[in-house]
């Protein structure tokens, strides 16, 4: 059994503007700007952004926890705002900048071992256990700080409540956000 290597698209800029015409329901070519790279996927219009990231681009940092908008594990940024990838259709994201946890530390998503301050503090403060909600927590946490809602613990509690951690690492998540907020 061979492991499929996700293909990185080249030739950005050659793609045409999306047409105004109806597309689908069969698979259509959708252009997504993910972590600074232009990626092309052939998907049906019903495919969610979460499905496109995970199944087409092998970016499995965004997690499927409920597929109903109730857990926050799929949190990514679209045009810099934290949103739920499970309730976003991928095709609606054409022309928007998508950022996933894979692209958080280094904009091109290559990782190279470097970490974003929020990632470092999540490790230092043991802000996770099983790790499944963690990418969503981190993307949400950076959003929370940037939105100006990490002033005190009461604020962090409220503005981080869209991300469920069943291991209940919440006090440590707050500690990580407190520690990282001045470096975000």
């Amino acid at each position: 059994m061979t492991v499929r290597t996700p293909g990185t698209e080249t030739g950005a800029g050659t793609a045409t503007e999306p047409e105004a015409d109806e597309r689908g329901p069969d698979p259509v070519k959708v252009r997504l700007d993910v972590n600074g790279a232009q990626r092309h996927v052939d998907i049906e219009p019903r495919v969610s952004l979460l499905g496109a990231l995970r199944d087409e681009l092998q970016l499995t940092g965004a997690k499927r926890g409920c597929d109903q908008g109730t857990c926050g594990a799929c949190t990514v940024w679209v045009d810099g705002r934290r949103v739920l990838a499970c309730l976003t259709l991928a095709i609606t994201c054409e022309g928007a900048e998508i950022t996933t946890v894979e692209g958080l530390a280094t904009p091109d998503g290559t990782g190279d071992g470097r970490l974003h301050p929020m990632q470092e503090e999540f490790i230092r403060h043991d802000a996770f256990q099983c790790g499944y909600c963690t990418p969503g927590q981190i993307m949400s946490a950076v959003g929370c700080v940037r939105e100006g809602h990490a002033g005190d613990d009461g604020e962090i509690k409220e503005w981080m409540s869209g991300n469920i951690c069943r291991c209940a690492a919440y006090p440590n998540i707050r500690a990580a956000i407190r520690a990282a907020r001045d470096r975000v």
């Binding site: 061979t2 492991v3 965004a62 996933t100 999540f122």
Partner: peptide, 16 residues
């Protein structure tokens, strides 16, 4: 692995 999203869980294994 967990904070970078590179930890692969059972439904995340890419296979041809």
């Amino acid at each position: 692995a967990k904070v970078t999203g590179t930890a692969r869980y059972a439904a995340e294994v890419p296979l041809t």
